[in-house]
Amino acid sequence: MQLSDIHSLILQRINSGVLIVDADINLVYFNRFMESHSQLKSEDVIGQSLFDTFPDAPEKWLKRKIQSVLMLNSPAFSSWEQRQYVFRMRHARPVTTSSEFMAQDITFIPVCNQQSNEVEQVCIVIDDVTDVFFYQEKLKDTLAKLEQVSRMDGLTQVANRRFWEERFKIEFASAVRHQNPLSLIMFDMDKFKQVNDIYGHQGGDLVLVEATRLVQSMLRKEDLLGRYGGEEFGLILPNTGGKGALELAERIRKAFQVHPMKFKEHVIHATMSVGVCELDNNFKKYEDLVTRADLALYQSKRDGRNRTTLYRK
């Protein structure tokens, strides 16, 4: 076999699109990969304008790109990361990937006249990187899920302590800077040890899940409920003063005491004690709110549980 025959065989069989345009951006070559994926025939497109052949291609951008290759005698590139595709075509994995069109990495290569060394044509090589695109998208989804998981308490699906504190720090700084009200509600299940002793840990878990679900349903979008530890929870309320926070706390407490929870053949009734504290000009850090809401919470416990206390200096 002649070397030139081998070259044209490779060009026809290679798993990349190869097309060549002249200085007027008319097609002079179109390999088999291009034919099969674009469903166009070589003999129909040779001599035609590239832009008539691919009317969806970004004409102005492509012209400038090809012009740079012709004038500078240097290659140019296009990556799927910036442009998923330039030439809209089907790809070879319609069954096992989800994207509709072929993701493409493209190289524009100058083709010089042997004698004059002037660039006469531009060879455009299109690599199908649908796989890369697909796996990159999957990776992105996975990372987003991981981030979500790293913020959540596994049992109750509310914010875990680390994420809750992170957000509290930000809310605190923003409230102080803009002189906005900010309140914190801390609540703790009453006699939780007893619940665990009577119904077992699964019963206890159910109480925590039901309590957080109930509270969650009573919140605004900007409020953040987090599991502070064990059976204690914290509720950050931006743009809310002590009065509003106390009202909400009471609504939550009352709703929970009449919220029966079905566990196997039992119905569990539980209550919570609540402490509320609002931002004061003297507070230096978010922990100052936590300490005081906790003091109010212990006051509720001392006063006989299932009640709400607003912290007062």
């Binding site: 970004p58 102005k60 951008w61 790109k65 740079s68 500078l72 005698n73 240097s74 290659p75 140019a76 590139f77 990556s79 990361e81 910036q82 442009r83």
Partner: peptide, 21 residues
């Protein structure tokens, strides 16, 4: 026509290849 990232990759390629050629 062009995203910010693509502006950077495009001008980089032009500066690099013209000089190195």
């Amino acid at each position: 026509d062009i995203s910010e990232v693509e502006q950077l990759t495009d001008i980089s390629s032009i500066l690099t290849t013209t000089f190195l050629n």
